[in-house]
């Protein structure tokens, strides 16, 4: 479904991705784990065609179609319906002063769909949001960061994309809310076969979600393999260090 070959990219002379190669099968959950500055977000920006990031080399194919046009991927045709994105910072994905209702209506219309309130109610409930009518009448600036994040997750889910990219989608959420979102993502994969590319700094989340785990460090993909293999038999020194450092529930 997704195939990235020899991808190198960066910002104004500073290279943040070095020769990344990875593929994703339809319906697969791949977790990309790394710490701040490891290049995880750059990778997502490269796939989604973020304007500030320049791809210096490599190709990005989605569903057999090459997305690269010049220095960046052109994901216009596929973003939203085919590739959904749940950003780390939801404030960046909504207009702060327009109601959610207007923004949701617009989102559906731009993908040729009509807005069904029952669907929205269901999506909101799955991310733990009650009283959908009141939320639809509200504006993003009136909401807390956690609320906006959950609404952004519901929005991405409503379009049921083939590939859902989650950039630290749960890291700003409380642990019980994060659990609701993780359960819902797994449910989406079960029901709709949605593939999920999940970027996280939390190996614990990766362990419970991923089919495969990729570890990034200083702009390189240093290790990739089936979830349990990476956790039980890490190969790279950095992966070993991450595994040793991750807190475990223990008395």
């Amino acid at each position: 479904m997704l195939e990235i070959k020899h991808l190198s990219a960066g910002y104004e002379g500073e290279q943040t991705l070095h020769d990344i190669n990875l593929t994703m099968q339809p319906g697969e959950i791949l977790c990309i784990v790394g710490e701040s500055g490891s290049g995880k977000s750059s990778l997502i920006r490269a796939i989604t065609g973020y304007k500030g990031l320049q791809v210096t080399e490599g190709s990005i194919c989605f569903g057999g179609q090459e997305l690269m046009r010049g220095k960046r991927a052109c994901a216009n045709g596929v973003m939203g319906r085919e590739i959904g994105l749940i950003p780390q910072n939801p404030e960046g994905s909504f207009n702060p002063i327009r109601t959610f209702e207007k923004q949701f209506r617009e989102m559906f219309a731009s993908h040729g769909m009509s807005m069904e309130e029952a669907q929205i109610e269901g999506a909101f409930e799955t991310v733990g949001l009650q009283d959908y009518k009141r939320i639809l009448k509200s504006r993003p600036y009136e909401m807390s960061g956690g609320m906006n994040q959950r609404i952004a997750i519901a929005a991405a889910m409503l379009l049921s994309p083939k590939l859902l990219i989650c950039d630290e989608a749960t890291s700003a959420l409380d642990v019980t809310t994060a659990q609701l979102v993780m359960d819902e993502l797994l449910q989406m994969r079960r029901d709709l076969g949605t593939g999920i590319l999940m970027v996280t700094h939390n190996l614990g989340i990766a362990k419970h979600m991923a089919d495969r785990i990729a570890i990034m460090y200083q702009g390189e993909l240093v290790e990739i393999g089936p979830c349990q293999d990476v956790i039980d038999h890490p190969q790279h020194a950095y992966t070993k260090q991450l595994l040793e450092s991750a807190p475990r529930m223990s008395a």
Partner: peptide, 12 residues
């Protein structure tokens, strides 16, 4: 119970 169960699912 809920807090601990969720935390277990988000740690190694």
């Amino acid at each position: 119970k809920k807090l601990i169960a969720s935390s277990r699912m988000q740690s190694l």
